[in-house]
């Protein structure tokens, strides 16, 4: 999937992946896509909850070799 910005939250625990996602989205334009990588398995449910509550669509969630990869579109 194409994306405009990427950051790696590997090794970070709750709530840092979410806080850093929020920060990363803040200087992006509406419609741009953020790729986020995390190793915290709690991030899967947290990213969905973040999306539900903030309205930024979570385009996809995938797991690859112990890493979770998220694509989120800025609303």
């Amino acid at each position: 999937m194409d994306f405009d910005k990427e950051f790696d939250a590997s090794g970070l625990s709750c709530p840092l992946p979410i806080l850093k996602t929020k920060k990363a989205l803040s200087d992006m334009a509406s419609g741009q896509v953020l790729k986020m990588i995390a190793t915290d398995c709690g991030a899967v449910k947290d990213m969905q909850a973040f999306s539900d509550q903030t309205g930024n669509p979570l385009l996809s969630t995938a797991e690859e070799g112990g890493k979770y990869i998220f694509f989120m579109k800025k609303k």
Partner: peptide, 11 residues
């Protein structure tokens, strides 16, 4: 601190 920062991130 965890709940405050997370809630703020959620708006």
């Amino acid at each position: 601190f965890i709940l405050a920062s997370t809630a703020a991130a959620l708006g």
